[in-house]
Amino acid sequence: MTSTTSAAAARRGPDRYHRGPVRWVVLALAVVIALAMLSPFAIMLLNAFKGPADYSANGPLSWPEEFYTQGLATFWSRTHFSIKFWNSLWTSGLVALFAVVLSLLSAYAIGIGRVKGRVWLVGVFLIANMLPQEVLVYPLFTMAQKVGLGNSGWSIVIIFTVIQSAFGTYLLASVLGEFPAALVEAAEIDGANRWQILVRVVFPIVRPTCSVLMIFFFIWTWNEFFIPLVMLTSPDTQTVPIALASLQGDRMLDVPTLNAGTLVSLLPTLVFFLIFQRTLTRGVTAGAVK
């Protein structure tokens, strides 16, 4: 098997698809598409630090004449951005943490504990993932009003912890279904109870998957628009995306201000993504296919 593979690889060496101009065409194509994908970000960056006069004189595609930061300052004070930022940060952070813990607990019982009726359970979690959020909004809204959590960040924390943990359970359960039995058995023979097995054996091994989930939960909750728009009705509880959206149609704001605001709203998720991109782009496929 190995010898045939290497023989084939050796034979393939000089074939025309892997040498010569085709290679450069492929590279050029990849670059062109990357540029097309990135151009909106580039346009945003180009205009975020450009003076309004500069913008109206030279258009959106010119290089800024000076490094203009007033737009950012205007956006920051106009939207009370510190408050929105903090609201987004604590709700998204808590959701990421809680949802991963809940997912791990239930996935452990389904994937390794193999509880009775787990096929049904996984089915329920799967359907929950396919349910449009809109179906839930009115009842959740009235429910939150009744228990005094209307217009509170905690309603966001609770709702998204549940939504994300439905996805997390589904994904982690399929990962844990492949977990090597020998490890669990060895721990049991050593007298470990179920809790110890989870914490000392299972968790260290699935930690990379858990951290990928956690980062995704954070980014998804941070970006979420519909439910926070409905639930959070006053400026002191609203999150970053709502603040950004509230500026739409504000004729008083110039383009640089809007761009600077957009940029600074994106920053946390972009930084997060760029730091963890290797794990993330791999982790998105874990358990998703098949």
Partner: peptide
């Protein structure tokens, strides 16, 4: 990973 609110703005 970019939020829809920002995408729309741009």
């Amino acid at each position: 990973v970019t939020m829809p609110a920002a995408i729309a703005m741009v």
